[in-house]
Design a protein around this nucleic acid. Sequence first.
DNA 1: CTAAGTCCTGACGTCGCGTCAGGTGCAAGG
DNA 2: CCTTGCACCTGACGCGACGTCAGGACTTAG
Lengths: 245, 245
Amino acid sequence: MGQLHKIGQLAEAAGLTVRTLHHYDRLGLVSPSARTEAGHRLYGEADVVRLYRVLALRQIGLSLEAIGRVLAGDAPLEPLLARHREHLDDRITALRTLRAQLGTVLTAVRGDRRADVTDFLDLIRKVTTVDETMQRYFDQTQLAELAERRERLGEDTIAGAEQAWQVLIPRVRAAVAAGMDPGAPEARELAREWMGLLEQFHGGDSGLRDSLYRMYEENAARVEQEFCGPDQELIDFITRANTTG
Amino acid sequence: MGQLHKIGQLAEAAGLTVRTLHHYDRLGLVSPSARTEAGHRLYGEADVVRLYRVLALRQIGLSLEAIGRVLAGDAPLEPLLARHREHLDDRITALRTLRAQLGTVLTAVRGDRRADVTDFLDLIRKVTTVDETMQRYFDQTQLAELAERRERLGEDTIAGAEQAWQVLIPRVRAAVAAGMDPGAPEARELAREWMGLLEQFHGGDSGLRDSLYRMYEENAARVEQEFCGPDQELIDFITRANTTG
DNA sequence: CTAAGTCCTGACGTCGCGTCAGGTGCAAGG
DNA sequence: CCTTGCACCTGACGCGACGTCAGGACTTAG
């Protein structure tokens, strides 16, 4: 007949611990088909085969209980795997948005060096709420597109763009305060820079641009307060500078 | 002073369960600063602020213990977040390879409809071991490139290519068995199809091609047995057809 | 006064094992 | 024969973030 293995040998051969095999035995997943008279487990070839099947299913992430059902023939494998893949997709996208949020927080906090803990926490709240808001205004493909472009541009470019807004907005505000004519060449130059920064965001995609405008319009007050965004007066100025240009 | 909230109100406002607030209280994360004489918890504004900070850090995925250290000022937040991000990266890549493996298994099993459970399991073993082998012969960027191309081509094209190999190999075998001259036009046509299929894999990238050849050479026996791959005789035939062509 | 709702504490269950703790079996050396 | 050392046994607790009772006290509306 086939070889009989003691539990230590099998554990080492399979790269597991003895405890794990004990665990599988208690769950009825892989039980040795024989014992010595002293009660030591003896695994036969069939047991080893079964163990490797368990490991295969474990490797793709099924729960031990699900593995048990599959090996007992109680559960069809294909739909289970299909569901499992969808579940994986969900977890992956969740982790990716999380990672993206973390990235935003980290670059933001590295940008300004005062790094107070409570500022930090407020920042995290901001980032996550912004993220939730984005999810309401952009659909799945749009978000993917944005993420891809950010990946391509790199963190530094993104940070640079935010800096550029923080510089450009005061300049436009000053121009409005000084009563500059929206048709003036300086105004048209400001509008050009403005649209350029906007384009860095939407990349020329009109769907993205429209969603962005809609999101801004419906959250203008919050953007203005929490992110030092532009107010309606500035927007009007730029709009007129564009249309007269 | 600020409003005092009972536990149920706070739970509903924060979208948590009462049990969760109990838990945070016992851990000392968020403890109510007052109680009624009957012992009911009363949360003040400061407690609410603290709760929302906890939730911000929890959303990022920190453990409750880590959150406690951060809020106590015992742990610097930035390096912790940086480490956490790396950890996330690892989990994401792990999940992605897993998802890719699952995808391979599912398409393969949908391709041929006999779908026996044990075949299924052997298939999973094959896929995962192939994946491990690939990891030894291709570096990170190469694997990413392969994954990207597979994404672009779609599952059907991949399945079609595998089918094409299963058709082409017997044809070449027949040609060799019939003693066909490697210089004959039919042989050169076979070689052209062969190289075309290879190109679908490596996409003209010489680095990918060389790694593939190396992997094949060092695992020829296994490929031949387990995947009905070509043997050395067929390869020689194609090589000669190519050089004489 | 009662019924329904809210609150309390305490304790077990989850998942896949890791990690003792306390004991037995077996072979070799002194 | 006794000890030493190793591999094995069973049983039990621990982890992490709560869910889910159980059993009881309080509160509020009718």
